[in-house]
């Protein structure tokens, strides 16, 4: 697979402020990278480096084989789509007019605009002025704009803010499609629930550094947050609870028939086997740490390390 984005120890200083302290990331074709972090963690600066809007103070940024801020910048930008965090577009123009303007700048046809309007579900509002749009409609228009010219790299800044649940679902479906078509996507976000199924890997940023970087599974392994397994039996079985309590730490009784316990990821399968051999098992649930928990974990590690 070809590398679409390559950041090599990229640093960015603004005067005395170090916005980025040496970031290394790789994004390949068909990969979706979740760029996560608090405000001020360096997400926006990282995006701007990839977009070629700023140049790194140190280190290297290569996008689609070129320096995005260099003389080949236009070639890069032709193949790149960007959805800014908050954009009000041109309130006096209609959605279709806005999209056509941006399409012309990218050398795209009217037909392509109409297709995109349909794709993002904005057909009914396309000929209304943008100033009448809701936040969700503006986000859809923003997405249509980012998809102009079938980009090979898509950068999306807080794309789901202001969208209703159905629209978020549509949005993630679009991301999954793009991923299959080989488009590389950077999803910049601090809203986490639901995103983990759609990203190939995550980079957790804090204070200008990459705190954790890898697939969700790799992050889970690194964080070593225990998996919570809960089991429910068809009758009152204190004996089972006691048996497990002697073998595992962190057993918690929920009610007469159910209990939950915490185990390491590596012990998970062995536990499943034991539980499934017990007669009368009615239900078994596994709760792996969510991305949100991982995110909190790595931010905590960072804070402790900083003290």
């Amino acid at each position: 697979m070809t590398s679409i984005v390559q950041l090599d120890l990229a640093e960015k200083h603004y005067g005395n402020v170090q916005a980025l302290k040496g970031i290394s990331l790789t994004i390949k074709e068909g990969e979706v990278l979740g760029l996560l972090g608090h405000n001020g963690a360096g997400k926006t600066t990282t995006m701007k480096l990839i977009l070629g809007l700023i140049t790194p103070s140190k280190g290297e940024v290569v996008v689609l084989g070129e320096n995005p801020a260099g003389s080949m910048g236009n070639t890069v930008r032709q193949q790149l789509g960007y959805l800014p965090e908050s954009v009000s577009f041109y309130p006096q123009l209609t959605g279709r007019e806005v999209l056509r303007y941006f399409a012309k700048l990218k050398g795209q046809s009217k037909q392509h605009c109409n297709d995109l309007i349909e794709r993002v579900g904005l057909t009914h509002a396309a000929d209304r002025r943008v100033k009448t749009y809701s936040k969700g409609m503006k986000q859809r228009l923003g997405l249509a704009q980012a998809l102009l010219g079938a980009p090979r790299l898509l950068l999306l800044d807080e794309p789901t803010v202001g969208l209703d649940p159905a629209a978020i679902q549509d949005f993630y479906e679009t991301i999954d499609q793009l991923k299959q078509q080989g488009c590389a996507v950077v999803l910049c976000s601090h809203v986490l629930p639901g995103v983990e199924k759609h990203i190939s890997k995550a980079a957790i940023l804090a204070q200008g550094k990459v705190r954790a970087y890898g697939s969700i599974d790799a992050l889970r392994e690194e964080a070593a947050i225990p998996v919570i397994v809960s089991a429910t039996f068809n009758e009152h079985r204190d004996d089972i609870v006691e048996t497990f309590a002697s073998r595992y730490a962190g057993v918690k009784k929920i009610n007469a028939r159910s209990f939950e316990l915490k185990v390491d990821e590596s012990e998970k399968i062995a536990l499943f086997k034991q539980l499934s051999n017990i007669n009368g098992l009615e239900k078994m649930d596994v709760q792996s740490p969510t991305l949100e928990q991982l995110y909190q974990h790595f931010n905590r590690v960072q804070q402790e390390g900083g003290l």
């Binding site: 930008r77 960007y82 990218k106």
Partner: peptide, 14 residues
């Protein structure tokens, strides 16, 4: 102020 400058500059436009 509208945020469109940032966007325009990510287009193939100097």
């Amino acid at each position: 102020e509208a945020g469109t400058l940032l966007l325009l500059l990510t287009y193939p436009l100097s």
